[in-house]
C-alpha cells in the first residue's frame, strides 16, 4: 500500500511540474542548458568514478581461487588431527595439568557459540591442549577470518573456562547493477556471497582425567 501512495505522490509531482512548465513561463533554453549541464555532470561522475583508486580494486586484485577447506568435524571426530593443515590453527593453548578431575565451563553450543569438541584418546600426559581451528570465512572474495574473535580460554585450578567470543559485526556496502542489467546477466540482486567457514575448539585432555561439564557435552 505504501508503494501505491509513493507512486501516486510521484505521479502528482511529475504531472504538476510538467503542467506548470506548460503554462508558467519557463524559458526552454534554460531547461536545455540545465539538461546539458546535468548530462555533463553525470559524465564527469563516471570519469571520476573510474579514476578513483577504490573503484578499480577488483581489477587489481583478481579473485583468488578459494581453496576447498577440509571438513573439520569429520577429521577431528575420526581422530585424523594430523591431516588438518597447520594454517587452519588460529589459536593454541597448552597447560600442564596434573589433577585427575577437570571441569569444563563452556557456553551453550547453540546460537552463536563455537563448536567445542573434547578428545581424550590422545596419548597426552599431564597436559591439556586446546586448539582453535578455523577455516576461512569469506564475504564474496574478501577473507574476513581474521576479523573473527577467537574464544577465550582460561584454566584455573581444576576448571577450564571457555568464554564466548565477542560477536564480530561486519558491514559491507556493495553495488549491484540496475535491474535491466541483472535481467540479462541472470544475476539476482542478493547473491549468496557468504561462506562461513568452520570453527571448532578442540580440547585434548589426557584419558586419565575425569571430565565434568556444565553442558551435555
Amino acid at each position: 500500500m505504501s508503494v501505491i501512495i509513493f507512486i501516486i505522490f510521484i505521479v502528482a509531482l511529475v504531472s504538476i511540474s510538467i503542467l506548470l512548465q506548460r503554462y508558467v513561463n519557463s524559458y526552454g533554453y534554460r531547461v536545455r542548458a540545465m539538461l546539458s549541464g546535468y548530462v555533463i555532470f553525470l559524465l564527469l561522475c563516471v570519469l571520476v568514478f573510474f579514476l578513483l583508486p577504490t573503484a578499480n580494486r577488483e581489477q587489481e586484485k583478481p579473485a583468488k581461487e578459494k581453496e576447498e577447506a577440509p571438513y573439520l568435524y569429520e577429521l577431528l571426530e575420526t581422530g585424523q588431527v594430523d591431516q588438518i593443515n597447520k594454517q587452519y590453527i588460529r589459536e593454541k593453548w597448552e597447560y600442564p595439568y596434573e589433577a585427575t578431575d577437570i571441569n569444563i565451563q563452556a557456553p551453550d553450543n547453540d546460537a552463536e557459540g563455537v563448536t567445542v569438541m573434547i578428545n581424550t584418546s590422545n596419548g597426552l600426559e599431564n597436559e591439556v591442549r586446546i586448539t582453535f581451528y578455523q577455516t576461512p570465512a569469506y564475504v564474496d572474495n574478501i577473507d574476513i577470518s581474521k576479523k573473527v574473535y577467537p574464544p577465550n580460554v582460561k584454566l584455573s585450578k581444576e576448571t577450564l573456562h571457555i568464554y564466548k567470543p565477542e560477536v564480530t559485526e561486519v558491514e559491507y556496502a556493495a553495488f549491484t547493477p540496475e535491474f535491466p542489467f541483472r535481467q540479462l546477466t541472470g544475476k539476482s540482486i542478493l547473491d549468496d556471497l557468504f561462506e562461513h567457514g568452520q570453527q571448532v575448539l578442540y580440547i585434548q585432555i589426557p584419558d586419565n582425567v575425569r571430565i565434568s561439564t556444565n553442558s551435555l557435552y
Partner: peptide, 16 residues
C-alpha cells in the same frame, strides 16, 4: 547472516 560469532550484513546500492 550470522553464524558462529560473526554477523555480516551487506547493503546493496543500485540506481534501481
Amino acid at each position: 547472516t550470522s553464524a558462529y560469532n560473526m554477523s555480516v550484513s551487506i547493503t546493496y546500492y543500485s540506481a534501481d
